[in-house]
Simulated assay, not measured.
Amino acid sequence: MTGDARSVLVERPGAHRLVTGEPPAPGPGEVRVRVHAAGVCASDREVYDGTRAAGYVRYPVVPGHEWSGTVDAAGAGVDAALVGRRTVGEGFRACGVCDRCRGGETSLCTAGYEETGFTQPGAFADYLVLPARLLHPLADDADLTAAALLEPAAVVAAAVLRAAPRAGERVAVVGAGTLGLLAVQLLAASSPAELLAVDPRTRPLEQAAAMGATVTAAPEESKELHGRYDLVVETAGAPGTARDSCLLARRGGRVVLTGMPEPGAHGIDPVHLSVSQLTVASVFGAPPAAWSYATHAFGQGLLRPAELITHRLPLTAFGEAVALVGSGDPAVGKVLLTP
C-alpha cells in the first residue's frame, strides 16, 4: 500500500495542514477503518479555535469524532470477518475495567478522558484506527453517508434513555440543531401527546415539524408554555437554554441537558428546582447502550439523519467546513467531510 493516506492535522489552535503518509496499521485488538464520511460539529470548531475546555483536547490532533466507514484491516486477535463490514464506532476510549466502566457508564471512566478526535487521532482522514470493541457494525446496505451522524444520534439516545419517555406525555425539545432534530425523531417514536420544538430560527423549526414535532415556537413564544411539559430535552447549549428548559417543565417534571454551554451561561434557579421538585440529568457522550439504541433505530428507519445534511466537502476543504459550522447561517445544517 502506497504512502498516500491523508489526514487533517490541527497542530495548535488556528493552525492546520493536510499531511500524507503510510496508512496506519492496526495493532492487537484494533481495526483500521476506511473513512466514508465524517461530520463537523461545534466541538470540532472549539478544537480549531482553541476554546475547548482544558483536558479535553491534546494538540497536535487529527479531529473527527462523528464518522462512518468500512473495516479494511484487522489486527491480531480480531475476528477477520469484520473486514469489509460497514460500521460506526464509539468515541470514548474507556479503560473497560474501572467501576464506572463495569457499570456501563464508559463516559465516566475514572482512568481519565481519552476520545477519538480530541486526544486520539480522529476521522478527518482517509483511515482511522480504533479498538475493535468500540465498533457497532451496520447492515450491508446501510447508507454510510447518513450513518456519519450516528455519533450525535447516540448522544441523543443517551438522553432519551435517561429521560425514559412514556406514551402520552407532553415532551419538549429545546434547540433544533443536529442534536435537537435527532431528538425530535427519537422522541416522536415514543408517541407523545404533544412534542414541542423550540428554536429562534425558522428553517430548523420547519424541519422539526416535518420530523414529528406537533408544536413549534421561538424562545419568546415558548414563555407562554412554561410549566406544561412532563419531559424537556435541552440540546442547544446556548447561554439560557438550561434555565429555560427547567421553566418549561411542569412541577415534578424531568429535564435532560445535552448541550454544552460556554462559561458564563445563565444558572438554573435552585429555588425553582426545589419548589418544582424537578429531576435534572445531564449527558456527555454516549455509553454502549446508547450506541446500540441509536444504531438499531437507524436500522429500523426511526432515525433519518440524511435529512439533516446540507454540505458535503472534500477532506482538503477542512478550513471551509469549520467556517461553515461557525457561520451562524441558518441554511447550514450538518457539514460532512468525505475523504
Rank of each mutant, 00 (worst) to 15 (best):
V71Q: 06
V61A: 07
E22C: 13
P24S: 08
V78N: 08
V78W: 03
R17E: 15
V47A: 00
R52Y: 07
G69Y: 05
A76V: 09
G29D: 00
R32G: 10
R45W: 08
G29E: 07
L18E: 11
V62S: 08
C41F: 00
Y48S: 01
P63D: 05
E46R: 13
G75S: 04
G39K: 01
A42T: 09
A15T: 15
P23D: 14
A38N: 04
G69S: 02
W67Y: 14
G14M: 02
A53C: 05
G14S: 12
A54G: 04
H16K: 09
Y59E: 13
A74V: 13
P13V: 07
E22I: 15
C41L: 03
P28M: 06
R58D: 15
V40C: 06
V61R: 11
P28C: 14
V19F: 05
V31C: 01
G21M: 11
E46T: 10
T20I: 04
P24Q: 04
A80Q: 15
S43C: 01
G77M: 01
A25C: 15
V61T: 15
V61S: 06
V40S: 00
R12N: 07
Y48R: 01
H16P: 13
L18Q: 10
V61I: 15
V78H: 05
T51K: 12
S68F: 05
G55C: 13
D79P: 13
G39A: 07
P24W: 01
R12V: 03
R52C: 09
G29R: 00
A74K: 05
A15Y: 02
L18F: 07
A37G: 10
E30W: 02
A73N: 09
V33L: 10
R58V: 13
A54S: 11
A73C: 12
P23R: 14
D79T: 11
G55H: 08
A76T: 15
D49G: 07
P63L: 04
S68R: 08
V57I: 11
Y56F: 15
V71W: 12
A54F: 12
A81S: 14
P13L: 02
C41H: 04
V47C: 03
H36P: 06
R34A: 11
P26G: 08
E66D: 06
P24D: 03
V78R: 05
E66M: 03
V19T: 14
D79C: 09
V57G: 02
T51E: 08
G29F: 01
R12W: 06
P26E: 00
V62G: 09
G55A: 07
G29S: 08
A25H: 14
T70W: 09
P26Y: 11
Y48I: 02
G55T: 06
